[in-house]
């Protein structure tokens, strides 16, 4: 199994506060890894470091053995990192299919002049992109919403569309930021199926932040626990559930 994401001694300091210190993780192909921890532990900061929104103070991030230092958000997306957001950030005024097609944007080659003159390459590329978008929507049973405005979809479908939009950039690593936030148990169940499906059909690595323990324990092969910016435990769901340090971080110390 090859190593998709590797972080070594990742650290970022804002003012005097180390939001993340000495963060290490490995995510392999076909693997779902959970990143958990109490509020403010630095989970979303890790995502922002991975996607280049924040610049690490020190440490190394490699994607498929390629060092990402100095790369912009856009370049990292082209390298193969895609993410979803804790608070849904779809292009709400655009149709569902346009949301997905936007992800192919930089991979289309036709020029403005070709679009104006409606030359074959414009038609060919737009048609191919449309078909790929529809295929992708079909995988997740969303093709019936294709022409619907993204903002009008029900909540669960908006979350799913965000995942599809990220997948459409053809990532090697998919970052999911609290995908189950605000979902009811049935929707969460559905989401777990979706995430499993992504791993099985697209063979990518998935790193997800989640507070819903049924989801994390249900689908993650490995879990990393953060607290106050530091990794306090790493292991399988079973090991994590029994780990006294984790229990303490979540529930506080037992009084003797």
């Amino acid at each position: 199994m090859s190593n998709v994401l590797k972080c070594e001694h990742l650290r970022v300091v804002f003012g005097g506060l180390a939001a993340v210190s000495d963060f290490n993780i490995e995510v392999n192909e076909n693997e779902i890894v959970g990143l958990i921890g109490p509020n403010g532990a630095g989970k979303t900061t890790v995502f922002n470091l991975l996607t280049g929104v924040y610049v690490p103070t020190s440490g190394v991030i490699t994607l498929c053995e390629k060092d990402l230092a100095g790369m912009s958000t856009i370049a990292r997306n082209h390298e193969g990192i895609a993410r979803t957001f804790q608070n849904i950030r779809l292009f709400k005024d655009m149709s569902v299919i346009d949301n997905v097609m936007n992800s192919f944007n930089t991979r289309m080659r036709y020029s403005m002049a070709e679009a104006f003159l409606r030359l074959p390459r414009y038609w060919r590329e737009e048609k191919a992109a449309r078909k790929r978008a529809l295929d992708l929507l079909h995988v997740f049973n969303m093709e019936r919403f294709a022409e619907e405005k993204a903002g009008n979809l029900p909540y669960g479908s908006q979350r799913r569309l965000e995942i599809i939009r990220a997948l459409a950039t053809n990532p090697k690593l998919l970052l999911l930021d609290e995908p189950a936030a605000g979902m009811n148990p049935a929707e969460t169940e559905n989401l777990m199926e979706t995430i499993g499906k992504i791993r099985d059909q697209f063979h990518i690595a998935i790193l997800l932040i989640e507070h819903d323990m049924s989801l994390v324990m249900g689908i993650c092969e490995k879990i990393t626990v953060l607290n106050f910016g530091e990794v306090i435990a790493q292991g399988t769901p079973d090991e994590i559930q029994k780990n006294p340090v984790v229990i303490e971080a979540y529930l506080g110390k037992k009084r003797d």
Partner: peptide, 25 residues
């Protein structure tokens, strides 16, 4: 109907998210 136009609409709605989808600002 063109990629440039869709990119413009995407950037005007959410600059950050557009960048994360690989769209050049």
């Amino acid at each position: 109907k063109t990629k440039a136009g869709k990119a413009m609409r995407a950037v005007s709605e959410d600059m950050g998210a557009a960048q994360l989808m690989g769209i050049s600002l």
